[in-house]
Every structure is written in structure tokens, then in C-alpha cells.
Design a protein around this nucleic acid. Structure first.
Lengths: 158, 158
DNA sequence: AGAAATTAGTTTACAGGGAAATGTTTTCCG
DNA sequence: CGGAAAACATTTCCCTGTAAACTAATTTCT
């Protein structure tokens, strides 16, 4: 073998090159990490990120149309159907078909659903803090703002 | 019906509440969006984000150990095995089991693999720009920096 | 009004990725 | 040295989420 073995990455340090400028790549990494953390912290409460998010949003927007929720939360309609079915079966959500447009479905929390959200609200909010990892408060705010802008999301008021 | 119908979200505007401060939520939204854009732009080149990323990284780190790649790219070992198998079958990647440690597997691109990466490099880099959407250059840089910090990633030099 | 097109949600059939168990090879340590 | 434990990758099985086709209701066009 020649004198200098090819710059071999036998250690744990990797060259990423332009990947470090790739939003898609970094976003995926960050999201997977955040997901793992979520399970570490909240799985014991019986929370799954998608399901709890949907309950949360229905709670804040009673009478929400199922399709609107799917679009805004970027959940595919087919999947949303299953999610909602599970939540209805579990007794957390109620479906209503309004007379004005009988194609659509409106969602609202049952009392059990309200109670569930209320019960886990604190753990959920606290988790946001954990996710900051070692970002300063400013950095965290900036990150939230940029992600919101990137996704074109806009909540009402706060 | 009573005078003021419950604050009904029959329109398309949604209240997210504290979700707007949830990294996990915003990261997922951003990542799904980025993914969709990737397919819009690059599916015609036959590129899938995961696969191309792996090829890219192997190209930059010849002799990379499969397990290290899995850890760094946050791909589960089981999935990495399948990915690599496909790429070996396709003739893009070569696997070598070194004599010094016959448990491990080292990866490198074949000529075909090199050619493939070279061919699509431009489209891939250009895509990063598209992903900026309407972020300014400063905002984009900041976002990349914060995501890198959040994930604790570090490439060698730039 | 009545056919055509659009919108909403569901069903079915399938692919992608994950957890757990397995088969090897290597390291640790008495 | 030799057996236990660890490291690495693969295989098997399962679950989540997706695409595509479908049913039902509503709107549009003439």
C-alpha cells in the first residue's frame, strides 16, 4: 500500500461539504432529534407528537373542519381519517356533519378530550424548553421566527 | 341560532397557540415542505433525498464505515443496510470488509457512483437556493447556523 | 333543471422505515 | 488461554403513513 493511506475517515468525524448549506438535510436531522427527545420525555405520558398536536389544535379551534386541519398540519387526508377515527374511538373527539355542507366533517373535543389536553399541557410546554438544548433565548426566538417564515405559517395573534 | 355563533373556524385561519413555540412542530412542518419541494424539483432526475445524501457523503468520505454513516445521518442501521444494498445492486457503491476488523463494512463509490453524483451535483446545489423561499441571505445563514447548533453537527471546515 | 366538474372524506393496497432478535467477529478480563 | 460481553451488521416482523381509486355531496355551466 502507498505511503499515505487515502484520507480515510476511520474516526467519527465526517465531511459533509455543501450538505451543511442544505435546509432539507439540516431540517431532517433536527426533526429526527426532536422526535427522539419527544419519545424520551413524553412517551410515558402516552403522548405521540402527531396525535397530541391534533387534539391541541382541535381544542383551540372547536368546530374545525377535518380537511382544514389536515392541510394546515400537513397531514395527508388518508392519515387524518385514521387519526381521527382512533381519537373518536378513544372518546377524545366528536365528529359532526353540518347540515349546511354534508360533505364536510367538523371536529371538537369531548370532555374527556379536554381533560386529556389539560392534564398534559404542562409536560408539553415544558418539553419545548428542553428542545432548546443549548440555544440561548435569543437564538431560540430567532429560530422559531425563521421556521415560521420559512413554512409560511401564521397563527392568529401570538 | 343565537346571535354570535361560537368563534367557529370555518375559514382557513387556525389558532395554533403555544405550538408556535414548539421546535418539534415547526421543524416537522418545515421538513415536510422541504421534502415536497425536493420531489417537485428533483424527482425527475431520479433523486431521492436519503439516497442522494448517502451517495454524497460516501463520495466525500471514501472508506466510510457503514455504521458511522448511519449514526451521523440519523438513519437506523436496519434501514441503512437496505439503502446500501440497493446502491450496491445499482452499481453505485462498493462494500469492503477490511481484514483489520471483519465486523465492519467500508463504503466507497464506484465510477458509476462518482459519475452519478457529479452529474446531479449542480441540480442539488441549486435546489438549496430554491429552498430559501423568501428568506434573505442573512436569515438563511442564521437558520443554517442555528440548525447546525441545535443538532450538534459539525462538518470538517466548510 | 340536469349534466359535468369540483370538493370532501374514506377505503384499500402497498412501501418505507423502526424495534427486536440473530449471527458474526472482536475485545475484555479473570 | 478461554469464556463473557460488546460491537457491527443483517434479517424478520410490524406499524405508520402514502398514493390511488372510490363514494358522496355540492357547485357550476348551459
Amino acid at each position: 500500500m502507498p505511503a499515505a493511506a487515502v484520507e480515510l475517515s476511520d474516526d467519527e468525524t465526517l465531511e459533509f461539504g455543501e450538505l451543511m448549506r442544505s435546509p432539507g438535510f439540516l431540517l431532517r436531522l433536527a426533526q429526527v432529534q426532536s422526535f427522539d427527545l419527544f419519545f424520551d420525555r413524553l412517551a410515558k405520558h402516552g403522548l405521540k407528537p402527531g396525535e397530541f398536536t391534533v387534539l391541541w389544535v382541535i381544542g383551540l379551534n372547536p368546530g374545525l373542519r377535518q380537511g382544514v386541519a389536515a392541510r394546515k398540519l400537513r397531514i395527508k387526508p388518508a392519515h387524518m381519517t385514521k387519526l381521527v377515527q382512533r381519537m373518536v374511538t378513544g372518546g377524545y373527539v366528536e365528529r359532526t356533519v353540518p347540515d349546511t355542507d354534508r360533505r364536510s366533517v367538523r371536529l371538537q373535543l369531548t370532555q374527556k378530550g379536554e381533560a386529556f389536553v389539560a392534564k398534559h399541557r404542562a409536560a408539553f410546554l415544558e418539553f419545548h424548553e428542553a428542545e432548546r438544548l443549548d440555544l440561548s433565548e435569543d437564538e431560540f426566538d430567532t429560530l422559531m421566527r425563521l421556521l415560521a417564515k420559512l413554512t409560511g405559517i401564521e397563527g392568529r395573534e401570538t
